[in-house]
């Protein structure tokens, strides 16, 4: 599959994400924020970083980048989209995912190897994991606190839209320990921790992040 990775001004993890896509057995295609062109990709990753310097609100300006018009239209038609960290914030600002991400409740930037539980392995990004599988990948954010009103939160939980939950400790004040989320259709996934930093033994906390990049292959052969 061809997986596009968008570079915004201020993206940090776009090259790591491209690399993870290749290690996961797919073709990585670089996409540019200023081009309303997805170059025929089958899926899109919005990487981590500080796009537009996090000005206004994290992801608020990126959400209106020319490439996002295409991403939003395709996502609504069912194309798999994964937003990691800043990408998750962009997906919430785009209203492709419910809720919002606000400053960590303890007000400090957090960087740690974080234990998660995969709560939903029915998305195109998580099908390589077992339901309930525990994985440890790096988390690094300043504004990762997931919030939503009570009705939205009840709906998210009721529909099984929580993709991953923090275990052992809640690093940023996210409601219901939510680390990752999918939309009603299940094709759009936002995740605060970084699976693209856990795809090789040489660096990071292990290989636990690889599943997010091999799931697409398993799905296409299924």
């Amino acid at each position: 599959m061809k997986v596009g990775v968008v570079t915004f001004p201020g993206s940090l993890d776009d090259v790591d994400a491209q690399r993870a896509v290749r290690i996961g057995g797919n073709e990585a295609v670089a996409l540019w924020h200023g081009d309303a062109d997805l170059k025929g990709v089958d899926a899109v990753i919005l990487p981590g970083g500080f796009s537009y310097g996090d000005y206004l609100r994290c992801g608020a300006i990126s959400r209106f980048a020319p490439v996002m018009t295409e991403v939003i239209a395709k996502a609504q038609q069912g194309m798999p989209v994964l937003g990691i960290c800043n990408g998750f914030q962009i997906l919430c600002e785009s209203h492709l995912l419910p809720g919002a991400l606000i400053r960590n409740h303890h007000r400090k930037f957090v960087c740690r190897d974080q234990l998660l539980r995969i709560e939903n392995n029915r998305t195109p990004w998580t099908s390589a994991y077992d339901q309930g599988q525990e994985i440890r990948i790096v988390l690094k954010n300043g504004e990762g606190g997931f919030v939503a009103d009570a009705a939205t939160l009840a709906r998210i939980e009721g529909e099984g839209q929580v993709v991953a939950r923090y275990l052992e400790m809640n690093p940023n004040g996210s409601l219901n320990d939510i680390a990752g989320l999918t939309n009603e259709r299940g094709n759009v996934v936002g995740l605060m921790p970084h699976p693209e930093h856990a795809v090789e033994e040489l660096t990071g906390s292990g290989l636990d992040g690889l599943g997010f990049f091999t799931s697409l292959v398993e799905r296409s052969f299924a």
Binding site: I102, R103, N104, H105, H106, R107, G145, V147, D149, G173
Partner: peptide, 12 residues
């Protein structure tokens, strides 16, 4: 920020 939303900066 809406009243029900935590405001860490205001708290600081």
């Amino acid at each position: 920020p809406k009243p029900e939303i935590l405001d860490p900066q205001g708290k600081a």
